[in-house]
Computed example of a mutant assay.
Amino acid sequence: MATIRDVAKAAGVSIATVSAVINDSAYVSPELRKRVQAAIDELNYVPSAVARNLNHGRSQLIAMVVADLANPFYSHLVCLAEAAAAAWDYSLVVFNSDEKPEAEKRIMSRIRQLSCDGVVLVPVGETAQHLQRDHSGKSIPTVLFGRVFEDKKSDTVTIDNESAGRQATNYLLDLGHRRIGSLIGPQHLTTGRGRYEGMMQALQARGVTPLPHHIRQGEFREEVAYTMAREMLQAPDRPTALYVANGLMALGLMRALADLGLKCPDDISIASTDTITGISGLRPRLTRTEHPIGDMVNESFRMLVGRITNSAPQQQPRHVIFQPTLVVGETCAPVTGAPASLVG
């Protein structure tokens, strides 16, 4: 493969002259320009897009760091982000932190090495906010997606997690349920904490206090939810309804119900929060609050590109909060009385 040095030698000019022709960065006489172009054509030389962009101070790369690529929510998010990046003439570089702060640190270091122009980050730890600077110490434009830091120093695009928890829980309460439990997410994350607080707000407004053992905290993962659900569902005083904090946890719960021979909503009603690929294909159809994820992705890239190109002159961070929507499925029914004891 021909190099810029080969082109310079064939044209009988300096490397700097070839670079000036390719990047149109300095005056080159028509005669020299013609010789350089002829050498480029003869050698079939393809300039490095990365080198050319870096010469203009840009890599045209945007990094996206997601928390768990095994979660269909994030797989779908990446697909939407690739389309959004292409629409702005950027390429997307994807990283998976696997919900590990130490992995997030390594990723942020790698992003600096790649000279990415900006970052869309689903944070897993508070440490990331201290790592968003390039090799010169300049701040890398960053939009936090879905989760936020408490100090709110970065641009953010999120949903109203408290509203998501309230909407789902209020729907269960409207059906007459009072013995309501929950599989909640990690409370150190704003998503897990917000949805739990929204649920509790709805319960307290109706004078309902959940039993402590009906609230189980775990990770946003299917297997964890499956284990917690089996324990709760085998208790003689199991809840008549459950609010589940995300789609993967809902899948784990539904699998536990099937393995225990329970039917939804005959034996227990379920409402969830999340938008994951394939969840609409579940039978019975899951009642859930959904994210407007496409709009959220487009907004995050609009904000980020504005910061990268300085077309967004405001200095203060922007915080855009989208509202979730309740989608009524088939997993909830009016309460019919106390559940029978389950042996198993």
Rank of each mutant, 00 (worst) to 15 (best):
L80N: 06
L80S: 06
A81I: 08
A83V: 10
A83Q: 12
A83F: 04
A84R: 12
A85W: 09
A86H: 11
A87Q: 15
A87V: 02
W88Q: 12
W88Y: 10
W88T: 01
S91L: 06
L92I: 13
L92K: 04
V93I: 15
V93W: 12
V93R: 12
N96Q: 04
K100V: 07
K100I: 03
P101V: 11
P101E: 12
A103T: 12
A103H: 15
E104M: 10
K105I: 13
K105N: 03
K105F: 00
R106I: 06
R106M: 14
M108W: 05
R110M: 09
I111E: 02
R112T: 15
Q113R: 15
Q113E: 15
S115T: 13
S115C: 10
C116A: 14
G118R: 10
V119P: 14
V119H: 10
V119S: 09
V119L: 15
V119E: 11
V120L: 14
V120M: 12
V120H: 10
V120Q: 02
P123Q: 09
G125I: 07
G125A: 13
H130D: 15
H130G: 13
H130L: 13
Q132W: 00
Q132S: 10
R133W: 08
D134N: 15
H135W: 13
S136C: 13
K138M: 07
I140E: 05
I140G: 00
T142C: 11
V143M: 04
V143C: 07
L144T: 07
L144Q: 04
F145A: 01
F145G: 03
G146R: 06
G146W: 02
G146L: 09
F149C: 06
F149M: 10
K153M: 05
K153W: 00
S154Q: 11
D155E: 08
D155A: 01
D155G: 00
V157L: 00
V157G: 00
T158E: 01
T158F: 02
T158G: 02
S163W: 02
S163F: 01
S163I: 07
S163N: 03
S163G: 02
S163A: 09
A164Y: 07
A164V: 08
G165R: 05
R166K: 13
R166L: 04
Q167Y: 08
T169W: 06
T169H: 04
T169Q: 06
Y171D: 00
L173A: 01
D174M: 07
G176Q: 08
G176H: 09
H177N: 03
R178S: 11
R178H: 08
R179F: 03
R179V: 06
I180S: 00
S182C: 12
I184A: 08
G185M: 05
P186W: 11
P186E: 04
Q187A: 13
Q187Y: 02
Q187H: 14
H188R: 13
H188E: 12
L189A: 01
T190K: 01
T191R: 12
T191M: 07
Y196S: 01
E197M: 05
G198L: 11
M200E: 05
Q201A: 14
A202Y: 06
Q204C: 09
R206G: 06
P210M: 05
P210C: 08
L211G: 08
P212T: 11
H213V: 02
H214N: 13
I215G: 03
R216A: 06
R216M: 08
G218H: 03
E219D: 12
E222T: 07
E223H: 05
V224T: 13
